[in-house]
Simulated assay, not measured.
Amino acid sequence: MNDSGASRLALLHFLARVQERDLARTRRWIATEEAREAERRVGAERRPPPPEWLIERGLDRNNIVAVHAGGCWDTGRRTKSVTRAQAVDALRNHVPACSKCRPDTALGIEG
């Protein structure tokens, strides 16, 4: 096998030590990944439910730009969670409904 003087048994013991180190490292990686996965699960369980209705405000914070359903994919960055009554009130006061999620239809308000 090898003429360096190392016996076959010594080489096999060396190989076993290397493999044990590799296995220990793999087990640490597994434990780390299991901890991350547990943290993700806890985070998902603790995450509050998404709001049902959103109001999008303009840059001056006084100007209401649109009313959105909570799951709308086209909301701006300046949105605030509101109650159903607040969303209905905004739509009745001529705040535009989002053309993507159609909260006016979902709320039964024809505009």
Rank of each mutant, 00 (worst) to 15 (best):
R57M: 05
L91G: 01
D22T: 10
E20V: 05
D60P: 03
D74E: 13
G108Q: 07
T79K: 01
N2D: 15
N63H: 15
R92S: 03
L54S: 00
A31T: 04
P48G: 08
N63D: 14
N93A: 10
G76K: 12
A87H: 01
R47A: 06
I64V: 13
G71D: 15
E52T: 07
C101V: 09
D104I: 05
A31K: 05
W29L: 13
L12G: 12
A87V: 03
V67A: 10
R25C: 03
G43Y: 02
E52S: 10
R36D: 08
T32F: 10
D60V: 08
D74H: 13
M1I: 13
R27P: 00
S4E: 12
A44I: 01
R61M: 12
M1G: 15
G76Q: 08
W73Q: 14
M1K: 13
V18I: 08
G111F: 10
H68E: 07
G76L: 08
A90E: 01
I64E: 02
M1H: 13
R36C: 06
W29T: 11
P103F: 12
E45M: 06
P49R: 08
L107W: 05
P48M: 04
A38G: 09
R78F: 07
W29V: 10
R92G: 02
T79M: 00
A69F: 11
E20Q: 08
P103R: 11
A31W: 05
C98A: 10
A90Q: 02
L9R: 15
I64W: 01
D3T: 11
W53P: 00
E56I: 00
L9V: 15
T26D: 10
A10P: 04
W73A: 15
A106N: 06
V95Y: 02
R28M: 06
A16G: 08
G70R: 14
E56N: 01
P48A: 09
W29G: 12
A24L: 04
A6C: 10
R27Y: 05
A38Y: 04
Q19M: 11
R77F: 11
I30G: 04
R46F: 03
A97E: 03
A69E: 14
A35K: 15
G58E: 04
R102I: 08
D3M: 08
R47W: 02
